[in-house]
Protein backbone atom coordinates (compact mmCIF):
# COMPACT_ATOMS: atom_id res chain seq x y z
CA UNK A 1 0.00 0.00 0.00
CA UNK A 2 2.81 2.39 0.80
CA UNK A 3 3.92 2.47 -2.80
CA UNK A 4 0.54 3.94 -3.69
CA UNK A 5 0.46 6.51 -0.94
CA UNK A 6 2.79 8.98 -2.59
CA UNK A 7 1.69 8.26 -6.09
CA UNK A 8 -0.40 11.30 -6.92
CA UNK A 9 -3.30 13.46 -5.89
CA UNK A 10 -6.60 11.62 -5.51
CA UNK A 11 -7.96 12.95 -8.79
CA UNK A 12 -5.03 12.19 -10.96
CA UNK A 13 -4.85 8.86 -9.28
CA UNK A 14 -8.43 7.99 -10.14
CA UNK A 15 -7.85 8.78 -13.80
CA UNK A 16 -4.75 6.70 -13.80
CA UNK A 17 -6.32 3.77 -12.06
CA UNK A 18 -9.56 3.21 -13.96
CA UNK A 19 -8.17 2.43 -17.33
CA UNK A 20 -11.62 2.72 -18.85
CA UNK A 21 -13.73 -0.40 -18.50
CA UNK A 22 -15.04 -1.29 -21.96
CA UNK A 23 -18.78 -0.82 -22.41
CA UNK A 24 -19.00 -4.40 -23.56
CA UNK A 25 -18.05 -5.57 -20.07
CA UNK A 26 -20.97 -3.69 -18.49
CA UNK A 27 -23.48 -5.10 -20.94
CA UNK A 28 -22.14 -8.62 -20.54
CA UNK A 29 -22.42 -8.32 -16.76
CA UNK A 30 -25.95 -6.95 -17.19
CA UNK A 31 -26.91 -9.93 -19.36
CA UNK A 32 -25.45 -12.41 -16.89
CA UNK A 33 -27.29 -10.70 -14.01
CA UNK A 34 -30.59 -10.98 -15.84
CA UNK A 35 -30.02 -14.64 -16.63
CA UNK A 36 -29.09 -15.34 -13.01
CA UNK A 37 -32.24 -13.56 -11.79
CA UNK A 38 -34.29 -15.77 -14.05
CA UNK A 39 -32.41 -18.80 -12.75
CA UNK A 40 -33.25 -18.09 -9.12
CA UNK A 41 -36.81 -17.27 -10.10
CA UNK A 42 -37.21 -20.58 -11.90
CA UNK A 43 -36.53 -22.54 -8.71
CA UNK A 44 -39.99 -21.43 -7.72
CA UNK A 45 -41.69 -23.30 -10.55
CA UNK A 46 -43.43 -26.63 -10.13
CA UNK A 47 -41.01 -28.40 -12.44
CA UNK A 48 -38.10 -27.52 -10.20
CA UNK A 49 -39.98 -28.41 -7.01
CA UNK A 50 -40.88 -31.83 -8.32
CA UNK A 51 -37.29 -32.63 -9.18
CA UNK A 52 -35.24 -31.20 -6.33
CA UNK A 53 -35.54 -30.81 -2.58
CA UNK A 54 -36.38 -27.47 -0.97
CA UNK A 55 -32.90 -27.24 0.47
CA UNK A 56 -31.34 -27.72 -2.95
CA UNK A 57 -33.46 -24.84 -4.20
CA UNK A 58 -32.41 -22.62 -1.30
CA UNK A 59 -28.75 -23.45 -1.85
CA UNK A 60 -29.00 -22.66 -5.53
CA UNK A 61 -30.77 -19.38 -4.85
CA UNK A 62 -28.12 -18.34 -2.33
CA UNK A 63 -25.36 -19.35 -4.74
CA UNK A 64 -27.04 -17.30 -7.46
CA UNK A 65 -27.41 -14.31 -5.12
CA UNK A 66 -23.76 -14.50 -4.10
CA UNK A 67 -22.65 -14.68 -7.74
CA UNK A 68 -24.82 -11.70 -8.62
CA UNK A 69 -23.47 -9.76 -5.65
CA UNK A 70 -19.92 -10.61 -6.67
CA UNK A 71 -20.54 -9.47 -10.25
CA UNK A 72 -21.99 -6.16 -9.07
CA UNK A 73 -19.12 -5.59 -6.64
CA UNK A 74 -16.37 -6.54 -9.06
CA UNK A 75 -17.58 -4.76 -12.20
CA UNK A 76 -20.16 -2.11 -11.35
CA UNK A 77 -18.40 -1.05 -8.17
CA UNK A 78 -15.04 -1.40 -9.98
CA UNK A 79 -13.48 -3.35 -7.15
CA UNK A 80 -11.77 -5.60 -9.69
CA UNK A 81 -9.83 -2.61 -11.01
CA UNK A 82 -9.01 -0.89 -7.72
CA UNK A 83 -5.63 -0.88 -6.01
CA UNK A 84 -4.89 -2.81 -2.86
CA UNK A 85 -6.71 -0.38 -0.60
CA UNK A 86 -9.88 -2.32 -1.42
CA UNK A 87 -8.77 -5.08 0.94
CA UNK A 88 -8.34 -2.64 3.83
CA UNK A 89 -11.96 -1.55 3.56
CA UNK A 90 -13.78 -4.66 2.49
CA UNK A 91 -12.11 -7.52 4.35
CA UNK A 92 -12.77 -6.24 7.90
CA UNK A 93 -16.39 -5.47 7.02
CA UNK A 94 -16.80 -8.89 5.45
CA UNK A 95 -15.28 -10.53 8.54
CA UNK A 96 -17.60 -8.62 10.85
CA UNK A 97 -20.62 -9.63 8.77
CA UNK A 98 -19.58 -13.26 8.69
CA UNK A 99 -19.00 -13.26 12.45
CA UNK A 100 -22.38 -11.66 12.94
CA UNK A 101 -23.96 -14.49 10.98
CA UNK A 102 -21.89 -17.14 12.76
CA UNK A 103 -22.96 -15.78 16.13
CA UNK A 104 -26.55 -16.42 15.10
CA UNK A 105 -25.90 -20.02 14.04
CA UNK A 106 -26.43 -21.59 17.51
CA UNK A 107 -29.70 -19.73 17.73
CA UNK A 108 -30.78 -20.98 14.32
CA UNK A 109 -29.83 -24.53 15.24
CA UNK A 110 -31.53 -24.49 18.61
CA UNK A 111 -34.68 -22.84 17.37
CA UNK A 112 -35.05 -24.90 14.25
CA UNK A 113 -34.80 -28.38 15.63
CA UNK A 114 -35.94 -28.14 19.23
CA UNK A 115 -39.08 -26.42 20.34
CA UNK A 116 -40.12 -25.97 23.92
CA UNK A 117 -43.66 -27.01 24.78
CA UNK A 118 -44.55 -23.35 25.22
CA UNK A 119 -43.35 -22.48 21.72
CA UNK A 120 -45.31 -25.32 20.19
CA UNK A 121 -48.39 -24.18 22.05
CA UNK A 122 -48.15 -20.48 21.47
CA UNK A 123 -46.46 -19.90 18.16
CA UNK A 124 -47.78 -22.79 16.19
CA UNK A 125 -50.88 -23.26 14.18
CA UNK A 126 -53.39 -26.03 14.56
CA UNK A 127 -52.32 -27.73 11.34
CA UNK A 128 -48.69 -27.77 12.35
CA UNK A 129 -47.62 -28.51 15.82
CA UNK A 130 -50.36 -28.11 18.39
CA UNK A 131 -51.72 -31.55 17.67
CA UNK A 132 -48.53 -33.25 18.63
CA UNK A 133 -48.60 -31.70 22.04
CA UNK A 134 -52.17 -32.63 22.71
CA UNK A 135 -51.46 -36.21 21.74
CA UNK A 136 -48.00 -36.25 23.29
CA UNK A 137 -46.60 -37.84 20.19
CA UNK A 138 -42.99 -37.58 19.17
CA UNK A 139 -42.54 -35.51 16.05
CA UNK A 140 -42.63 -37.67 12.92
CA UNK A 141 -39.57 -37.91 10.71
CA UNK A 142 -40.59 -35.45 8.04
CA UNK A 143 -41.64 -32.67 10.36
CA UNK A 144 -39.23 -29.88 11.08
CA UNK A 145 -39.75 -26.20 11.45
CA UNK A 146 -41.82 -25.36 8.44
CA UNK A 147 -42.97 -28.66 6.98
CA UNK A 148 -46.70 -28.24 7.13
CA UNK A 149 -47.77 -30.67 4.49
CA UNK A 150 -46.94 -33.81 6.44
CA UNK A 151 -48.41 -32.43 9.65
CA UNK A 152 -51.48 -31.37 7.81
CA UNK A 153 -52.20 -34.77 6.29
CA UNK A 154 -51.85 -36.34 9.66
CA UNK A 155 -54.31 -33.89 11.12
CA UNK A 156 -56.97 -34.48 8.55
CA UNK A 157 -57.17 -38.06 9.73
CA UNK A 158 -57.31 -36.82 13.29
CA UNK A 159 -60.20 -34.53 12.44
CA UNK A 160 -62.17 -37.23 10.75
CA UNK A 161 -61.69 -39.54 13.70
CA UNK A 162 -62.99 -36.76 15.90
CA UNK A 163 -66.08 -36.21 13.82
CA UNK A 164 -67.05 -39.85 13.84
CA UNK A 165 -66.30 -40.43 17.49
CA UNK A 166 -68.12 -37.38 18.73
CA UNK A 167 -71.85 -37.89 19.10
CA UNK A 168 -72.86 -35.70 22.01
CA UNK A 169 -74.60 -32.52 20.94
CA UNK A 170 -73.51 -29.37 22.70
CA UNK A 171 -76.85 -28.84 24.42
CA UNK A 172 -75.56 -27.77 27.79
CA UNK A 173 -74.11 -24.64 26.27
CA UNK A 174 -76.49 -21.74 26.07
CA UNK A 175 -76.61 -20.02 22.72
CA UNK A 176 -75.25 -16.49 22.55
CA UNK A 177 -78.01 -13.90 22.05
CA UNK A 178 -77.44 -13.26 18.34
CA UNK A 179 -77.76 -16.91 17.47
CA UNK A 180 -80.93 -17.35 19.51
CA UNK A 181 -82.52 -14.23 18.10
CA UNK A 182 -82.92 -15.66 14.64
CA UNK A 183 -84.99 -12.92 13.13
CA UNK A 184 -88.39 -13.92 11.94
CA UNK A 185 -90.59 -11.88 9.69
CA UNK A 186 -93.78 -13.81 10.09
CA UNK A 187 -96.08 -12.22 12.65
Amino acid sequence: MSEHAHESTPHGHDDHEHHAVPMKTYWTVFGVLCVLTMASFLTYTEIWRDQFSTHAGWSLMMAVSCSKALLVILFFMHLKYEANWKYVLTIPAAFMSVFLMLMLVPDVGRRMYRYSTERWEHTSDYTGAAFYISELLPLPEGIEGGDHAAAHDHNIEHRHADEHGEAEAPEHISLPPDAAAADQVAP
Binding site: A93, M96, S97, V108, T123, G146
Partner: peptide, 27 residues
Protein backbone atom coordinates in the same frame (compact mmCIF):
# COMPACT_ATOMS: atom_id res chain seq x y z
CA UNK B 1 -16.54 2.88 1.22
CA UNK B 2 -16.31 3.23 5.00
CA UNK B 3 -20.00 4.05 5.09
CA UNK B 4 -20.79 1.06 2.89
CA UNK B 5 -18.77 -1.26 5.11
CA UNK B 6 -20.93 -0.20 8.07
CA UNK B 7 -23.98 -0.68 5.86
CA UNK B 8 -22.85 -4.21 5.02
CA UNK B 9 -22.85 -5.00 8.74
CA UNK B 10 -26.19 -3.26 9.23
CA UNK B 11 -27.93 -5.33 6.59
CA UNK B 12 -26.05 -8.48 7.57
CA UNK B 13 -27.55 -8.04 11.03
CA UNK B 14 -31.05 -7.50 9.66
CA UNK B 15 -30.88 -10.40 7.22
CA UNK B 16 -29.32 -12.67 9.87
CA UNK B 17 -32.16 -11.84 12.25
CA UNK B 18 -34.66 -12.59 9.53
CA UNK B 19 -33.04 -15.96 8.87
CA UNK B 20 -33.15 -16.90 12.57
CA UNK B 21 -36.77 -15.88 12.91
CA UNK B 22 -37.89 -17.34 9.62
CA UNK B 23 -36.19 -20.71 9.79
CA UNK B 24 -36.71 -20.97 13.54
CA UNK B 25 -40.45 -20.44 13.27
CA UNK B 26 -42.64 -23.54 13.63
CA UNK B 27 -44.79 -22.15 10.84
Amino acid sequence: WLFLSTEIMFFAGLIGTYIVLRFGAPS
